[in-house]
Write a protein that binds this DNA or RNA. Structure first.
Lengths: 143, 143
DNA sequence: CTATATTTAATTGCATACAATTGAATTGGA
DNA sequence: TCCAATTCAATTGTATGCAATTAAATATAG
């Protein structure tokens, strides 16, 4: 163990995490292109397909993103007709983001995305479960 | 198992990967701020602390980044005096990126980064090893 | 009840990421 | 040898990420 070993890329855990994340997002691209969605837009749509409505704050908490990222992205989804944006009537600080009929329709088409992505993985099921557990353990630590 | 379950955030492996990557990079920020480096700049410097010289192509292969990301980033590191950029004499298509004396000096200071980051982790050593193995298995698949 | 503190989304500025294109240099085949 | 194909870095355009600030709305302490 040499003095500078800790500074080598191959001895870091963050780098493969960072690289893997981007490589897998690249795998999504051809499938998401068919929906005319970016990966981040797809994440927002996934939350709304499940919850129908969420504030910017809630989207940010769920996706670990802030308003600086979400505001322009949501305006884009709005311009595509997939969502609506409106101030909450009970608390005007909140912006309610709601899925539209058109947004709902995209859900059917989106079903093919996880289907096709699943085929790309070479992980054993136990590895996927292990990976999932470890990643959420790390994420929970920030709570 | 409902029809749309595969479209839920919590059933995806890519999302926690993406979120984890960004959360851990945020943990690096206060330490990297002291070196006046961003995380990506730090990655490039790590390669050069080890290899002294590398072409843009080699940096890109190692870090999974392309010239569109690296070119402006390398110009910034050059303007800080940490690296030099010069066309290779044997093949002018290649750009040789080399560490400077000042870049070498930063290595000492950088030693504290992995030290302090290690303290932030709540993973068991076996979990870290498992995570590392799985991530590199995914990365190798793209080779 | 009111001044202050807090919460929330938007904005600004900077730094990536990356697809697609360009242009220069080199390679390899006819 | 010569030219078509390939390789490589740079450029362009779009889309994030995120820290820091701003401004409006709401909550809270006194």
């Amino acid at each position: 163990m040499e003095k500078y070993d800790a500074l080598k890329i191959e001895n870091q855990i963050c780098f493969p995490l960072y690289a893997c994340s981007r490589e897998i997002i690249k795998q999504y691209k051809p499938f998401l292109d068919e929906l005319d969605l970016t990966y981040t837009q797809y994440l927002v749509m996934m939350v709304l397909w499940e919850k129908k409505v969420a504030t910017v704050k809630e989207l940010g908490t769920t996706l670990y993103l802030d308003s600086g990222t979400l505001t322009p992205l949501l305006k884009k989804l709005e311009s595509k007709g997939l969502i609506t944006r409106a101030r909450s009537k009970t608390d005007e600080r909140n912006l309610d983001v709601a899925i539209t009929e058109q947004g709902e329709e995209l859900k059917e088409q989106a079903l093919s995305v996880p289907e096709q992505i699943a085929k790309c993985s070479n992980l054993e099921p136990e590895e996927a479960v292990m990976l999932y557990k470890i990643l959420y353990k790390i994420l929970k630590q920030g709570t």
